[in-house]
Amino acid sequence: MNYNWDWGILFRDPYAGWILEGLWWTIVISLLAWVIAFTLGSILGVFRTTSSPILRAIGTCYVELFRNIPILVQLFLWYFVFPEILPDDWGRWVKRDMPAPAMTTAIVALGLYTASRVCEQVRSGIEAVGVGQRQAGRAIGMTEPQVYRHILLPNAYRIIIPPLTSEFLTIFKQSSLALTIGVVELTAMTRQIEEYTFQGFEAFTAATIVYSLVTFTVMFLMRFVDKRTALPGTFASGGA
């Protein structure tokens, strides 16, 4: 292989700082997008399991729409198309005046997309809790919102911690898509280091290690959380 490795580049100023800065933005994007995805996804998941046909239809339409268009295309729609179909003043605000336009757009796009996936996890969690619990709640005089608040959701979340963890990690990885609209997150930083130093593979290696480390750390922590919060009497609790 005809390539001159220079690992020192990763520890040299300013490139080490660039990698950390890129990681910081990757984490910011992932966490904020996750807030949107989790909140909206939970609401939609509830919609899809309620007794109201209208709410169920809204939930289904949302999921089908957002799940069947590639996330990159969705990102472009939000970034390039959405501001142009708004009234001029609003479009200008989206493009210029709102804080960090490109990054905010990326956060919203990722959040809305992942909400459709979280919705499906929440729905399957609620379904896994079972009809019996729902009926029992209603039988003791709880309203439907109360049943969700006190019985279905708390149990469902405890069941779906593993799939939700993997959805969060998906956001974390997909935040790299933000580079296509000019957000300089971790992957974009490695490209920038290559431009300045022509040592692309070292920078890629650094990013690879950082992504893996964060992923494995999150997985390790969540496995611990999952054990602590497992519902008694299920396989996850280990006492089947």
Partner: peptide
């Protein structure tokens, strides 16, 4: 586990520049 921890974009960049070097 390794590949599932990486963004697809990063893998594409890696191989896009690496494959020709490896194949020589």
């Amino acid at each position: 586990n390794f590949f599932r921890s990486l963004p697809l974009i990063l893998v594409i960049f890696w191989l896009f520049f690496l494959v020709p070097l490896i194949m020589g």
